[in-house]
């Protein structure tokens, strides 16, 4: 007899603990204010990403189409994956002196792991991380980008 009693007691305890959990589930089912999920593709316009979020590397330009990159290749050396390739040229100034300058800033987004080491390494704060994270394209070659805008030149006073 005691065996049957014990059996019924176990079943009762199991069902009651199940109901206890179900009570909590039911609470969230009926309280819609507690919902925290977001409708992502629909809320694109209101999506606010933090300032430090690492989406992709960009070279900042001001309104006169000037950037701050001197072509020192510190970022290229800091990158662990070979993501950045900088092609430099020698500009000749009025006094006839040769000076190293940036020709093309090539950025391989497909190799980038967003480790932020290039941003930290840059001595002139020329590059920064942008918040854009939707990178899918149909052709992988589109992920190799040239960051300096056509016709852009070095900002005055940046050494």
């Amino acid at each position: 007899m005691s065996f049957i009693k014990e059996y019924i007691r176990t079943v009762y305890r199991a069902v009651s603990s199940l109901l206890k959990g179900m009570k909590l589930t039911g609470y969230y089912f009926t309280h819609h204010k507690e919902i925290i999920t977001q409708n992502y593709p629909e809320n694109r316009d209101t999506l606010n990403l933090p300032e430090r979020f690492r989406g992709e590397v960009v070279l900042t330009h001001n309104e006169d189409n000037e950037h701050r990159c001197t072509g020192c290749t510190a970022c290229e050396l800091a990158c662990p994956n070979g993501t950045i390739k900088i092609i430099t040229q020698f500009d000749v100034n009025e006094e006839g002196k040769k000076k190293k300058a940036l020709n093309t800033f090539i950025y391989h987004l497909e190799l980038c792991t967003m480790c932020n080491l290039c941003i930290v390494a840059c001595p002139t704060d020329a590059i920064k991380m942008a918040q854009n994270f939707e990178h899918s394209v149909y052709d992988r070659s589109k992920l190799t980008k040239t960051l300096n805008a056509p016709g852009s030149k070095l900002m005055e006073g940046v050494e």
Partner: peptide
Amino acid sequence: EMINDIMEETCGARLTMNYMVPGGVMYDLH
């Protein structure tokens, strides 16, 4: 998710932060 948001704000990433560097941390706290 709340912790991930805190991480995202201070470190810039949610999972692979790379925030600890030799000598300290990469950025100051948000």
